[in-house]
Nucleic acid binder design. Structure first.
Lengths: 341, 341
DNA sequence: GTGAAAGCGCTAACAA
DNA sequence: TTGTTAGCGCTTTCAC
């Protein structure tokens, strides 16, 4: 009685069956040029007959790589990062990499370790969506593993970053509100100052329309949670004159504020037009649906992965990559009611 | 000039420095018993000095494992699965496994391949949230890699499943509506029949209160998207007498219907009380906030991982594991307005 | 074009 | 308790 094959077929099994050496089989598997057609066919047939599939662990050991790429985000359950993860999964699959998601939960320590490539497994590259890192953290990093930073910061140019042009996007968002006839346009978010790109876009759009940005229209929040948005919405309602529109730096903030407005008896967009930012899925299902800036996540993910590949293959000059975005107009700023897919 | 260490320190480097054999270092690293304290200390010091970290690729090659576990879901960007992924990431981290997320996008083919453990990398175990698989698919699977099915189905008992008791949960949800004084309680969802557990829970709660389930209250949908919910909401509004409450088999359906109700001039919960299912994050931010059934995702994830570990270690008897759940009462069924975190 | 053989870094028999 | 060593399955340099 023949015992069943104790494990998956290996390179040697294929080689034996095809009557060649493992070197040749390896060549075929890895698509080397210079193999005679007949040999190649023999090998391919043996592979098919045996159902051979390369053991990537062994391959990676030999190659000194893992084939694993890490995506580090604060928390995947947050809609924006869930969507990002989705896009990254697709982008890495196209490159035959395996994506490993890691949650920082806003921990500086975890982000620092990610910078150094310290994960459970050894990793070929890191795509990081930072929350607490500083330029100094990046400058001091010792590891040289391929790294891409997501977001609008450029980190002193010492590392590749992929983001969208937030100044332009914010400008476009506020322009849109102005085009709807709004003149008292608030901006809501954390860390709003002359450094903040979305803030600059907001101010630029107003000035461009001959409106001087009013400091009282700048509504600072602690963070970007729905509760922060709710609280900001309540503050906004008590202002007089009340703003007739508000630009929120994230959708989640905007949704919280809409909730506050509706509880306070205001109608969106009639009383206050609202624009968010990020295009999270819920913006399509909320009532009203939410006008927002949609970063091209697929492009961001592909650019990030492409940079990882380039860095791996020796091209290490850092670049600041800008992906595209679009303004999605929905009910919260006056679009007619629709049902989207 | 000494060239820089070309790579990470290896077992031999540690062994050399500590003046022992690699076997001993390996023992220390793997927490074997039977090592003299002094040796252990010497080795540990060498490890610390060198900053040694085991190469998991090599370890896995030698052990014949990958340390990788796959979570297969339709799409991570969907809130429910994003939350699930979050919990699974935590649960696998606790077990020193690395989670690889794979999106089936509802493809039968992809799900079948997952069943066989066919991923880009070789995988130690699979946790699958199925959409199209049948009992037959499971019965015919050839691979023996550890597998856990998520959800309420039990697959003829041939595989371990982890889910919650949907009959009880649905019963509790509808009981809650009855306790709010509602009597005409619709149920909304796809595939509603005597086999469907949430349907059975709905019917049981009604009968228990002396209400005979009215077939006209059963509102079938094509799927579970927001648009399906919206359409169901519109149908529900046109019924007469109109139901005064509705139980939706997913939150996303419920949110879509709420949108329809509000557009149609109805107030939730005053005109129609609404209960959803799944506790997706949006349910806390919507207006009104959404009453729902919250599966204990952390428990589900831990049970799934625990089963994977048990299967890997030879305990392969399939079991149907039931995790806990709770009813979360929010505004959509009459809870007073609150701001949740 | 193809073969032989030396690693990749670690685990785990087998010895001592 | 600790050392020696044969793999794990594949890549790749060097010959032929």
């Amino acid at each position: 009685m023949t015992p069943p094959p104790p494990t998956h077929p290996r390179l040697v099994d294929v080689a034996k069956r095809a009557g060649v050496s493992i070197r040749t089989v390896s060549n075929v598997v890895n698509d080397f040029p210079y193999i005679s057609t007949t040999t190649r066919e023999r090998v391919e047939q043996a592979i098919a007959e045996l159902g051979y599939r390369p053991n990537l662990i062994a391959r990676n050991l030999a190659r000194g790589r893992t084939g694993l790429v890490a995506l580090v985000v604060p928390q995947v359950a947050m809609p924006y990062f869930a969507s990002l993860a989705d896009s990254m999964l697709e982008a890495t699959r196209d490159e035959e990499m395996v994506l490993v998601i890691s949650q920082s939960r806003g921990s500086h320590q975890v982000e620092l370790e990610a910078l150094e490539g310290r994960f459970g497994q050894r990793i070929d590259g890191v795509v990081l969506s930072p929350t607490t890192l500083t330029d100094a953290d990046i400058a001091h990093r010792r590891s040289t593993i391929p790294l891409v930073m997501l977001g609008d910061r450029t980190w002193g140019g010492v590392v590749t970053s992929v983001g969208i042009d937030h100044v332009s996007a914010a400008t476009e968002a506020v322009r849109h509100l102005i085009a709807q006839g709004r003149h008292r346009i608030a901006i809501v978010g954390p860390y709003l100052n002359e450094e903040a790109k979305r803030f600059r876009g907001w101010a630029a759009a107003l000035r461009e329309a001959g409106i001087e940005p009013d400091p009282t229209w700048v509504i600072g929040t602690d963070g970007s949670t729905g509760e922060d948005g709710f609280a900001a919405g309540e503050r906004l309602m008590q202002m007089s004159p009340r703003p007739d529109a508000a630009f929120f730096v994230t959708d989640w903030l905007a949704l919280g504020a809409v909730r506050a407005f509706q509880r306070g008896g205001l109608t969106v967009p009639d009383d206050v037009a609202v624009v968010g930012y990020d295009d999270i899925p819920y913006g399509r299902a909320s009532n009203p649906t939410l006008t927002t800036i949609r970063p091209d996540r697929a492009e961001i993910a592909h650019q990030a992965v492409a940079s990882l590949v380039a860095q791996r293959d020796g091209d290490s000059a850092p670049v600041a990559i800008q992906a595209s975005w679009s303004l999605v107009v929905r009910e919260s700023s006056g679009a007619p009611a629709t049902i989207e897919a």
